Simulated scan of single mutants.
Amino acid sequence: MGKISEIMLLKQPEQPALAVEVQTDMNGMSEAIGKNFVKIDSLFKEQGEVTTDIPYVEYPDFESLTEHNIKMIIGLKSSKKLQGEGDIRSITIPERKIVSCLHRGTYSELAVLYNEMMEWIKANGYKLSGTSIEYYYSNPNVPKEEQVTRIEMPLL
């Protein structure tokens, strides 16, 4: 199916979050994401908090990712600064401009939307920061072709 919203330029406010940095490969991605979402959510519950958005995975320097070398920052946003624990860090996502779009379909189809978003950024005179963030709206039991993902690309 592909893109299900227009590509939008948004101003994102400063936002506290809890996050874990992970290095893995394609085969370990699903497990790393699932395991760390659960771990971070448990820390939220211990502190009596709930997330302010759906879980996200940030891919710093996403254009350099390879099948065997994937760096991810897995996180949940909060309404206030929370305490980190172990490898879970308390972070503040800075206020920034982002380009955002929704996609329905398999993850393998996301490359087409990434390319379209990068072209939009160039055509509108913006510069990409090199980071992409994906928000996964669907649980793993949803058929692959029905999965919904929001992509955000912070700008410089």
Rank of each mutant, 00 (worst) to 15 (best):
V20K: 07
V20T: 09
V22S: 02
Q23H: 14
N27L: 11
N27W: 08
N27A: 13
G28E: 00
G28Q: 00
M29L: 09
S30V: 03
S30G: 15
E31V: 08
A32V: 00
I33M: 06
G34S: 09
K35Y: 11
K35Q: 11
N36G: 01
N36S: 01
N36F: 01
V38S: 14
L43G: 00
L43V: 01
K45A: 11
Q47L: 10
Q47P: 08
Q47I: 09
G48S: 03
E49G: 04
T51H: 10
T51C: 09
I54Q: 13
Y56Q: 10
Y59W: 04
P60N: 03
D61Y: 11
D61A: 15
S64V: 08
L65S: 08
T66H: 07
T66E: 06
E67L: 11
E67C: 04
K71I: 10
M72I: 09
M72F: 06
I73W: 01
G75T: 07
G75F: 03
L76R: 12
L76C: 05
K77M: 15
S78R: 06
K80T: 14
K81L: 10
Q83V: 11
E85C: 11
G86A: 05
D87C: 05
I88G: 00
R89P: 04
S90F: 03
I91P: 08
I93W: 01
P94I: 10
P94W: 07
E95G: 12
I98K: 02
V99D: 00
S100V: 14
C101D: 01
L102C: 11
R104F: 07
R104K: 15
R104A: 10
R104I: 13
G105N: 03
T106R: 10
T106M: 09
T106D: 10
Y107F: 11
L110P: 03
A111S: 14
A111V: 14
A111N: 14
A111Y: 12
V112D: 13
L113N: 14
Y114N: 13
E116F: 02
E119L: 14
W120M: 06
K122H: 10
A123H: 09
A123W: 04
G125A: 06
Y126V: 02
K127Q: 14
S129H: 06
S129Y: 04
G130D: 04
G130R: 02
T131V: 08
S132Q: 03
E134L: 04
Y135D: 09
